[in-house]
Design a protein around this nucleic acid. Sequence first.
DNA 1: GCTAAAGTGTGACTTAAGTCACAGCGCGGT
DNA 2: ACCGCGCTGTGACTTAAGTCACACTTTAGC
Lengths: 226, 226
Amino acid sequence: MGTHQDLAWRLGQFELFSMLPMELLLRMAQSSVVHSYGAREMVFTEGDEISSLLLVLEGDIAVFKRSSDCREQVLAHLKAGEVVSLVPLLLDEQTCHSASGRASLPTQVVSIRLDMFKELVERNFVFHRTLQRFLVGRLEQLSFLAASLSLQSARSRLAAFLIRQADQPGQSTGITQVEIGAEIGTVREIVARLLRDFEQAGWLERKRQQLVLKNRAALEEEARRW
Amino acid sequence: MGTHQDLAWRLGQFELFSMLPMELLLRMAQSSVVHSYGAREMVFTEGDEISSLLLVLEGDIAVFKRSSDCREQVLAHLKAGEVVSLVPLLLDEQTCHSASGRASLPTQVVSIRLDMFKELVERNFVFHRTLQRFLVGRLEQLSFLAASLSLQSARSRLAAFLIRQADQPGQSTGITQVEIGAEIGTVREIVARLLRDFEQAGWLERKRQQLVLKNRAALEEEARRW
DNA sequence: GCTAAAGTGTGACTTAAGTCACAGCGCGGT
DNA sequence: ACCGCGCTGTGACTTAAGTCACACTTTAGC
């Protein structure tokens, strides 16, 4: 690992950079640094100055905001090939992170110098189109999140979350009830109680940091309640 | 009003199209139609097929989702120069609106043929950059909304809303309590009660569909509570 | 293996938010 | 002026969600 050639090649694998010539990828790789984070380790913090563009190479970053009483709300998950600091990259005014990010799996991030990045990418149509698709996708997800926080019960949001979770390829790291709470906008105790309800209804089995869905249809039904 | 030259000129005034040559603007204008909507009139509905790109010429469209018991949550406001149907424009899969839109002021909308639009804009860098800035701006706002729905009280959200409202240039059409509820994610009665509290605290005066802020600092303080 | 720390389970209680019901109020028609 | 409808004001009540407290369980580290 670690050579610039290597990194350049990995960058080229991502949709965002798929059309850049190797020569440019190499230049980018040469002025970039890769960081590794363990599960649950902070990657960036709300209010921090943004020094460079962060691209997720591997793993998953949960982006969240925190309230004064230390509750957190997860707003998005960034996976391999997605970039973090879009916001200020394009809005030239803002220069600090508007939310925090924490690895939810072992995660590798490459930080790319902003000036370098801007220069390379400025004139590339495919890049812009791809970036726009990312942005619009996130917009959709956030719209859904906001609507569901406002219009659905915690019960329905949990059901929806469990389904989503089940549809994802195996996450190595288990998820705690506190983390589930941060995903669906409630506190640990509520998650515990709702999970008990679901278990009593025979919809799932609770093991430690491991839930086994038994009746997906019922959960989907619950998730559809608006 | 009404001539294609006219419309082409108006389009050219917007940042999104500011760099397109008049000739292209004209072609676009020729295959476009302008619609007018009165305040509170529906412009598009969740689930509707998207036939063309909608650009707001003038006024304001509130974009919202509705729950089964008919509560609504406003997700964004689209003002002059902003486009509606971005989502499916870029994600080629989806072809229907993921939310509804209603004019919150007398509003003019121009619907531009999708194929035409794509063709014209495909190769224009300035357009892409501007579009990205719009998208990122909305992303920020939605992040804020989601976080505040999850982490703030209705009281704080109302205070924040009143401040935002006060900072906007005069809205001709008054806003009802139901509408305020849809903005901040609660029901009419809660809005009424909170407004009474604020009035009793001497922070504002209630008139019919007209609120006069008396103590902006106190409201800002309340809005800052997380 | 013991201990500390983190995670979980749960009952009892508080509180914010939502629901229901109904009485005024104000404005726009005819 | 009158009527009617949509908006507002408010009390009484219900309920979902959040808080607190504490016991128990699993895991990681020494």
